[in-house]
Amino acid sequence: MFKGSKVLQPEDLNQMNNIIEKLKTQSKCLVVLIVDDSGHLITNTESDPSIDPILLGTLTAGNFGATNELAKLIGEAEFTLVLHEGNKENIHMLAIGDCGILVVIFANTTPIGLIRMYSQKSVTALLPYLEKMQVEKKASKKDLPSDEDLENLFNW
């Protein structure tokens, strides 16, 4: 049962919600989202009802993925700061281990230093909960098909 799925328990979600609500209050940001590594929205702080959090989660996850790939392409393991500057709002994104992404949207009048500091703290606090969700480890290398296996699959 639950083969290969992630499981999120109510008490853990509560804890995560507390962490991001606190982040919102302390950093004076507008919206906080937690998105998992497949792009699924885990949770978000209450925000403007005109903003669809699922779409926002998908777009930010895609964006973060692209950014990470860019980092690799220019020879960085990861970017230590990912920041998008808009005319009203900015977005700051951080990886939560390799399990998910913390997305913080804030007014561009809010100091980035404040956002960075509290976001970093939240990531540390969130990591255990996200790791706990990962009930099943990814298939290990030896279970995955070798080059030879793949060649045999398609005998073109």
Binding site: S5, K6, V7, P10, L13, D37, H40
Partner: peptide, 12 residues
């Protein structure tokens, strides 16, 4: 990866 969210009673 499927997410089974018991808090929101949701499966994605």
């Amino acid at each position: 990866m499927t997410m089974l969210n018991y808090a929101k009673k949701e499966i994605i």
